[in-house]
Nucleic acid binder design. Structure first.
Length: 404
RNA sequence: GGGUCGGUGGCGGAGUGGUCAAUCGCAGCUGACUGUAAAUCAGCCGAUUUCGGUCUACGGGGGUUCGAAUCCCUCCCGGCCCA
């Protein structure tokens, strides 16, 4: 039996940092954590896209704290719920095929494994809800549905909005929260963690657990971090800073946050203490260059996922390539046949999405060889271009390797 | 089931017989600038081309016409109202 640790500092962090709310209350859950009882906690992730992002990392790190405290933690993949799709703001989600789902989740264990431990003395359990949801019979479903009213369903703000806008809502979308709630019943959990967008679903789950198991499920909702483009970070849109991104990419994406996001980025995505964040806030108000702090934020974000070394390398890469416009350290090679058209080379190596796109980039001075813009889209590459560096846009570099 | 309105590019949304590969906004791309892959500004933004064109595309199919996203028929799908 794993020993339960009641480390008040860790508990405080779990209850406060990046937390929007805890239901029924923070104090109630603190008591629970201090009681010595071993709790079962989970967060679910639907494989609607291949990438987990730093927004998910918030929840995953929270799970990590509970793992450290000795509780039983479950990382649940919603492979069955993903089929139905959590209702979206303005559209019905498309239903995914088994294959898409498998693809999307194929590396999740690895991605999440950067933050929590799936092995060791108190391993995080990796589960899929296919295990129980696929076994539900119509009878079970009817019983499940009888627990909740249509009125309650319609309260969900996105449904309300879609009704007002005249956007269709399909009946199966109502089943989603019930399926998610049933996960908690099947696993008999004591707590669920999720973003504020999951509040409704998680609270429905609270009712279900009360009714099926007669116990209380606590709910922790996380604040949500915007994506660098200012929209919601989303698996489906793919606009987030992804856990599978290279450190360099993560750093760059983090740098593209607008200045207003710096402080919340520190709070939600890094371990930097709240006191320090407050100091930075004052410094910026006094007129210090926000760029300095944004770089630190980017560094800390990379550090938390990829480690200190990778963060240092990423920062150097950014300063060298973006700030100073120098060549990066590592440049991957591409094979080029003698006499091959530059346009074809760009397309073949995914530096352009089509020949027309390649031509446009060339026309606009976006393609350089050894730092010299090429404007001739009919250019053929030959031996003279061996070992030269092609640069496309601001940050794609390739070394030419001529082959016969 | 009846009535009515509608289905346009990754998304939102104009266009109602020719100058429509389709106004515009968002997203994306390239450049300039900078403190950044921020903001701002400029350009680009279906594919293919021997750069003359050619092909595919406005829910699907068929038709009218020299010519259709635009008109007609039919089918499919959705919103709203009524039952």
């Amino acid at each position: 039996m794993t020993k339960i640790i009641a480390d008040e500092k860790l508990i405080d962090e779990f209850l406060e940092r990046g937390v929007e709310a805890i239901y029924p209350s923070k104090e109630a859950f603190r008591k629970k954590l201090m009681s010595g009882e071993r709790l079962k906690i989970y967060e679910g992730f639907d494989p609607t896209g291949p990438h987990l992002h730093v927004g998910h990392a918030m929840g995953i790190r929270a799970l990590g704290i509970l793992q450290k405290l000795g509780h039983e933690v479950i990382f649940l993949v919603g492979d069955y719920t993903a089929k139905v799709g959590d209702p979206d703001k303005d559209t019905t989600r498309k239903m995914l095929t088994d294959e898409e789902i498998e693809n999307n989740m194929s590396s999740w264990k690895k991605q999440a494994g950067q933050l929590i431990d799936f092995d060791g003395k108190n391993p995080v359990r990796f589960e899929r809800n296919y295990k129980w949801l696929s076994k539900l019979k119509l009878n079970d479903l009817i019983q499940l549905m009888s627990n909740i009213t249509v009125q309650r369903m319609l309260e969900r703000d996105m449904f309300e909005r879609r009704i007002k806008e005249g956007d269709p809502i399909r009946l199966h979308e109502f089943i989603y929260p019930l399926m998610q709630g049933y996960d908690g019943v099947a696993m008999e959990v004591d707590m669920e963690i999720g973003g504020t967008d999951q509040t409704f679903n998680m609270l429905v789950g609270r009712d279900l657990i009360k009714s099926y198991l007669g116990k209380e499920k606590f709910v922790r909702t996380n604040k949500m971090m915007d994506a660098p483009d200012g929209r919601t970070m989303s698996k489906t849109k793919g606009n987030g800073i992804n856990l599978a991104d290279s450190p360099e990419d993560m750093f760059g994406k983090a740098m593209s946050y607008s200045d207003e996001h710096i402080l919340s980025g520190f709070e939600l995505l890094t371990d930097v203490s709240m006191e320090e964040i407050e100091k930075m806030k004052l410094a910026m108000e006094k007129g210090e260059n926000p760029m300095i702090f944004k770089k630190k934020m980017a560094y800390e974000i990379v550090k938390i996922i990829k480690g200190e070394k990778a963060a240092e390398v990423a920062q150097k890469h950014f300063e060298q390539v973006i700030s100073k416009k120098e060549l990066p350290m590592d440049i991957s090679e591409i094979k080029v046949f003698i006499g091959e058209l530059l346009i074809d080379v760009l397309v073949k190596n995914e530096l352009a999405s089509s020949k027309a796109d390649a031509r446009r980039k060339i026309d606009q001075g976006g393609v350089k060889i050894d730092n010299e813009a090429i404007y001739d889209w009919q250019l053929k590459l030959d031996e003279n271009y061996s070992e030269k560096i092609i640069k496309v846009g601001k940050r794609e570099f390739r070394r030419i390797k001529i082959t016969k």
